[in-house]
Computed example of a mutant assay.
Amino acid sequence: MSKIAVIYWSGTGNTAMMASEIAAGIGADAEVFSVDAFSGSVADYDKIAFGCSAMGDEVLEEAEFDPFYTSIEGDLKGKKIALFGSYGWGDGKWMRDWEERAQRSGANVFDEGLIICGAPDADGKAACKEYGEKFAAY
């Protein structure tokens, strides 16, 4: 059994909903944390799914999430990670930039980051759950 964390930031609740569905797909091994509640070490987890909404000009949230991610980025080398988040505009540039950044840090990035425009509907929730199932098997 793998120890898997789901760590996210959500401004409107959309990415929080995604985190919950992804964790449901992962199953009992998932531990879910909002970024401000995570006080552990990424080294304690075999896999981590990171979630953050697109903000501003399609960037990671700058007050909480990006500083957190920057602080643990050096610990991601060789770590299996997944990326997800919601957006309200743009074409997913923040996710492509984030994937590239994670790969440069040496992380083993699972699949493409999962993005959903706005709140996940029934199909979006199903996609999140499936993403979690596949990440757990990764």
Rank of each mutant, 00 (worst) to 15 (best):
Met1Pro: 08
Met1Ala: 12
Ser2Gln: 13
Lys3Val: 07
Lys3Gly: 02
Ile4Glu: 09
Ile4Thr: 14
Ala5Arg: 11
Ala5Asp: 08
Tyr8Ile: 09
Ser10Ile: 10
Ser10Met: 11
Gly11Leu: 08
Thr12Lys: 12
Thr12Ile: 04
Gly13Lys: 12
Gly13Thr: 09
Asn14His: 14
Asn14Trp: 10
Ala16Trp: 07
Ala16Leu: 06
Met18Ile: 06
Ala19Lys: 11
Ser20Gly: 11
Ser20Asn: 15
Glu21Ser: 14
Glu21Pro: 01
Ile26Ser: 06
Ile26Gln: 08
Ile26Thr: 06
Ala28Ser: 14
Ala30His: 04
Ala30Gln: 06
Glu31Leu: 06
Glu31Asp: 05
Glu31Met: 07
Phe33Ser: 05
Val35Gln: 12
Asp36His: 10
Ala37Thr: 15
Ala37Cys: 08
Ser39Arg: 15
Ser39Thr: 14
Gly40Lys: 14
Val42Ile: 15
Ala43Asn: 12
Ala43Met: 05
Tyr45Gly: 01
Asp46Ala: 07
Asp46Ile: 04
Asp46Val: 03
Lys47Met: 05
Ile48Phe: 05
Ile48Glu: 03
Ala49Thr: 02
Phe50Val: 04
Cys52Ile: 01
Ser53Tyr: 14
Met55Gly: 00
Asp57Ile: 05
Leu60Ser: 02
Glu61Tyr: 06
Glu62Asp: 13
Ala63Pro: 00
Ala63Gln: 14
Ala63Met: 12
Asp66Asn: 09
Asp66Cys: 00
Pro67Glu: 07
Pro67Ala: 07
Phe68His: 07
Tyr69Asn: 01
Tyr69Ala: 06
Thr70Leu: 04
Thr70Ser: 08
Ser71Asp: 09
Glu73Gly: 01
Glu73Phe: 13
Glu73Thr: 02
Gly74Leu: 09
Gly74Ala: 09
Leu76Trp: 09
Lys77Tyr: 04
Gly78Asn: 13
Lys80Tyr: 15
Ile81Glu: 07
Ala82Asn: 07
Phe84Glu: 03
Gly85Val: 07
Ser86Trp: 11
Tyr87Met: 15
Tyr87Arg: 15
Gly88Ala: 10
Trp89Gln: 10
Trp89Glu: 07
Gly90Phe: 14
Asp91Ile: 08
Lys93Gly: 03
Trp94Met: 15
Arg96Asn: 05
Arg96Leu: 10
Arg96Pro: 00
Arg96Phe: 11
Asp97Arg: 13
Trp98Ile: 01
Trp98Ala: 03
Trp98Tyr: 09
Trp98Lys: 02
Trp98Arg: 02
Glu100Phe: 09
Arg101Ile: 00
Arg101Pro: 00
Ala102Asn: 04
Ala102His: 07
Arg104Asp: 08
Arg104Tyr: 04
Arg104Cys: 00
Ser105Asn: 02
Ser105Ile: 01
Gly106Arg: 11
Ala107Phe: 02
Ala107Ile: 03
Asn108Ile: 10
Val109Cys: 04
Asp111Gln: 13
Glu112Thr: 12
Gly113Tyr: 10
Gly113Pro: 05
Leu114Trp: 11
Ile115Ala: 02
Gly118Met: 05
Ala119Met: 08
Ala119Arg: 13
Pro120Tyr: 11
Pro120Asn: 08
Asp123Cys: 00
Asp123Ala: 12
Gly124Asn: 04
Ala127Leu: 05
Ala127Met: 05
Cys128Ile: 01
Lys129Tyr: 01
Glu130Arg: 10
Glu130Phe: 00
Tyr131Met: 00
Gly132Phe: 06
Gly132Leu: 03
Glu133Gln: 14
Lys134Met: 02
Phe135Cys: 06
Ala136Tyr: 11
Ala136Lys: 15
Tyr138Val: 02
